[in-house]
Design a protein around this nucleic acid. Structure first.
Lengths: 202, 202, 202, 202
DNA sequence: TATGAATGAGAGTTCATTCAT
DNA sequence: CATGAATGAACTCTCATTCAT
């Protein structure tokens, strides 16, 4: 509704996503948004609430971007592959998202952990339902293990990009390298599903 | 030689590892170490240099803890399994390590990225040599992809522990759950090596 | 518009002028101005910028106070005498001015030297034009030598007052003594102009 | 006697003279002298005492350099000219001397004012005796006025060098310009003595 | 909605100085 | 004579936040 509010949110997303909550000051955001510092408090009450709002907005986009994949039909394998693609697409379009989430997880920035948990809930629910068709609740090939491995494999490339750059000729995030990584993820999912289906873990 | 210096380093490791660089002040460290704030600057010149020293110390432990695995003999498969165990052991004993590294990667805290790259170099070299025996340099099953997936799968459990707690009955890091995760990683490595060896990606 | 800003400037002028840039802390200024320390940075960004502003303000007063003399008509001799009086008057009314300028010159406080040079430019221009009517550009009676001797003779009394006090019965700056010094300066200017005009330097 | 002590004194002279008391830290001096910081306190007890010692050393050189001129015989005029030369020579060889003295005078750095007064006493005594032969104690051509004008004219060139550089093609202190200034001072003294002797001030 | 002015708390850092060895 | 370690006080400056307008 308000133009200032949107500009603030946009600036906050960019800056928090690039440098993290603690390295960005309210002044930085006001400068980038070209609004008065006090306006941020008028609209969001505190820096923490602003961050929370940014998080919630991201999760909204997240949910929206993935809903189609969550609702998808077809074989289990098809659904998982489609989700991988949607997930990678989402991150490519929202590069600061993994950093934001990981910032909350890593600094144990107390207040925001429940928000992230709530935001991730639909994703986890999807995983439980989908992988639940073929995997047990506990043990080496449990749903939660499959989920963590897929999620970790996807996210890792983006969160550690800066330090792993040398392995990717300095450009881990260019189109070709992301394509290579995406292909690997599809291969990974395939061998995992093969193995689970054939009971190879026994 | 100097007792104060060691106390400072110990305190800094604990605090930086638990809350991240930006949420910890020099005063926090001095208080925890029970030394005068100025002593930190006497020994380390700046907060940044102190952080750098902590990082370097961690990489020393890291190298030491993994050297045996790096030098190990036996079949490729044996060597990789042994490394997985050593890596998980190391993280269990140095829980702040993944957070420290990830903090640098995520905030793009410029000055420290080269330090992390240097610290990780031996690990990467090991991976390149070991996986290089059976995997290509590029493509979906390239060395770098195998490495990222294994590393991401290991680290993910620890870095995202706080937000994924609900999937693990609230205790992702208790002994039983870490054992389950460890078993999964061994399973994962096995199916990946099986697949690469049989050329299943073609 | 802002009352706090003015109070800060006033306090800074007083304190910098009396004790010099380095012996005065931002806290001192805030205390004297009865404002919050942070307000100084809100209005002036840094201690250096505050000092710069004080300098510029002084030069404004300086220019204003001397403009009449600069624009004056009459014989050369009349104009120079009028300037001497205006200059002494100005310093009597702005006792910290010579100290401020001299502080910059003496500590080679880099950033501020150009400011002082710019501030003194109109004065120098006046001297070049005025003395230029009868004095050469170089040599023992050059414009720049005449200017330095007059300026030095005026300023010296005020800058060295504290250490030369014994010669003036402990009160170099009381009315009677300033009057005596002023009379000397007029005498000095007269004999200098006499000498230059009669070519006595040959 | 002690090598360290001398190195400290030398470093302190250089640094205090170039940047002033307040802009130089004990650490700076220790670094420059290549000694341990604590050694400075062993030899001099405090930064203030070190500064005092530097001042006293300078006055010793000052006295030594000028004694010959003070004791000189010949006509009044000859003695004054010789003093001018000796004074300029001394400053050329001790460029930080005027800055040191002026720093004390300007910051009203309390404790050191008596030291400077004591150091300058022989110079003033000489002036009183010499000029006393022809000038009165009070009034426009009093001894103290003649002294201040000569002293101010000599010192001004050196203390304000940095800000007056533009008038001297950027190099107020090169050999040729100092020679020009010196010639002016001789001219100045001559016309002043002429005027006083002929009673031109009446 | 929006803003300029103001603030208390705390940040990292430097200081002169002390002391045991 | 010399030093490494240590400290309390002070430094400039930034922070998130408030409030009157």
């Amino acid at each position: 509704m308000s133009e200032g509010r949107d500009r603030i949110l946009k600036a906050a997303e960019d800056l928090f996503g690039t440098h993290g909550f603690d390295r960005i000051s309210v002044r930085d955001i006001a400068d980038r948004a070209e609004v008065n510092k006090a306006l941020i408090f008028y609209h969001f009450n505190s820096k923490d609430e602003l961050f929370e709002t940014v998080l919630l907005n991201y999760f909204e986009s997240h949910t929206e971007a993935l809903r189609e994949s969550w609702d998808a039909t077809g074989t289990l394998r098809e659904r998982v592959h489609r989700m991988i693609d949607a997930y990678v697409d989402f991150i490519v379009n929202h590069r600061s998202w993994p950093k934001l989430v990981q910032h909350v997880a890593a600094t144990e920035h107390g207040e925001h952990i429940p928000t992230v948990q709530r935001g991730l809930a639909p994703m986890i629910e999807w995983a439980v339902q989908t992988f639940g068709e073929i995997a047990p609740n506990e043990g080496p090939t449990s749903v939660r293990n499959l989920f963590e491995t897929v999620a970790g494999s996807v996210l890792h490339h983006f969160t550690y990009a800066s330090v792993l750059a040398p392995m990717w000729n300095g450009e881990p995030l260019n189109e070709a390298h992301i394509a290579e990584r995406r292909a690997h993820l599809h291969w990974l999912v395939d061998i995992m599903l093969d193995a689970v289906e054939s009971g190879a873990h026994l």
